[in-house]
């Protein structure tokens, strides 16, 4: 649509689309949107006895199943595999929550966006915070793994914290992009859901990346999602991620940031028209 857009003198509703300020706003809104997501979580606990922990149980069941199958297929001790696979699935579920919830962030809140004038960044922040809260629930499984000695605890484990921050920072930009694009093109959410299933198989989440044949190594080397899995998983397994892994993850975050800025710039004014 090429309808000319008039200039707006409105103080911050649309002027806030100024690209360079997106990052600052993301940080400023952090607390507000986290409180919002926290209330959602509280209400979830109220309606079901263990609330979001059901999802954690799903993760635990899935990890056990996959560990059983993988050890059968590729050999290896199930005790060694379960730490690798478990952490992989926990991180993957964060990625998948961010992507799936990201797609529906604006569409799901159509009524609220059209009837109130709070900043739309808060909806993005709510989605990201919710994913973070669910991720924190899943980390309970990590603690169980620690107790049973399935994963080591060393100083290197602390390196997972910047990894998690990077994962969710990149996640918040990805959510911004997906939220806008999926509000405009409704078919995309379904396509992305499909792709995500394929990505789960293709990414070394539950299978060992070292076992892949040389002629298929590109599946691992060019898979950006794998790098994000590794920046969190490797430290928790007691390994320091290589500089290459960090460079790819940071580089990707910079790129998604600028794509988010561009998306915001191109689509912010028309968002309400999409809904």
């Amino acid at each position: 649509m090429n309808t000319p857009m008039a200039t707006v003198a409105m103080d911050d509703q649309f002027a806030q689309g100024l690209p360079q300020r997106l990052f600052v706003r993301t940080m400023v809104n952090l607390r507000t949107s986290f409180t919002w997501a926290w209330l959602d979580t509280k209400c979830q606990y109220r309606r079901s006895r263990i609330g979001p922990l059901w999802e954690t149980i799903n993760v635990a069941v899935m990890v056990s199943g996959l560990a059983l199958v993988t050890s059968g297929l590729f050999g290896g001790n199930i005790g060694d595999l379960i730490g690798y696979i478990g952490l992989g699935i926990i991180i993957w579920s964060a990625i998948s929550t961010l992507v799936i919830e990201g797609c529906s962030t604006f569409v799901r809140n159509t009524g609220q966006i059209l009837s109130s004038n709070i900043s739309i960044d808060l909806y993005v922040g709510r989605t990201v915070s919710k994913a973070l809260i669910i991720f924190a629930h899943h980390l309970a499984l990590y603690l169980v793994g620690l107790v049973f000695g399935l994963v080591p605890l060393t100083w290197i484990s602390a390196l997972a914290i910047p990894g998690i921050l990077l994962l969710f920072l990149n996640g918040s930009f990805v959510v911004t992009i997906l939220a806008f694009i999926c509000a405009r093109y409704r078919d995309l959410e379904l396509i992305i859901r499909n792709l995500l299933q394929v990505a789960f198989m293709v990414t070394p989440v539950f299978w060992n990346y070292q076992l892949i044949g040389a002629h298929r190594k590109f599946i691992v080397d060019y898979n950006i999602l794998f790098y994000f899995v590794q920046i969190v998983r490797l430290p928790l397994l007691g390994e320091v991620p290589s500089a290459q892994i960090y460079l790819v993850a940071i580089g990707t975050t910079v790129v998604t940031f600028f794509v988010a800025v561009l998306t915001y710039y191109k689509m912010r004014r028309r968002l309400a028209f999409f809904l």
Binding site: V8, N117, R269, R270, A272
Partner: peptide
């Protein structure tokens, strides 16, 4: 500020 004007100004 939910809709941006498509013509004129606000």
């Amino acid at each position: 500020g939910i809709y941006a004007p498509t013509s004129g100004s606000i």
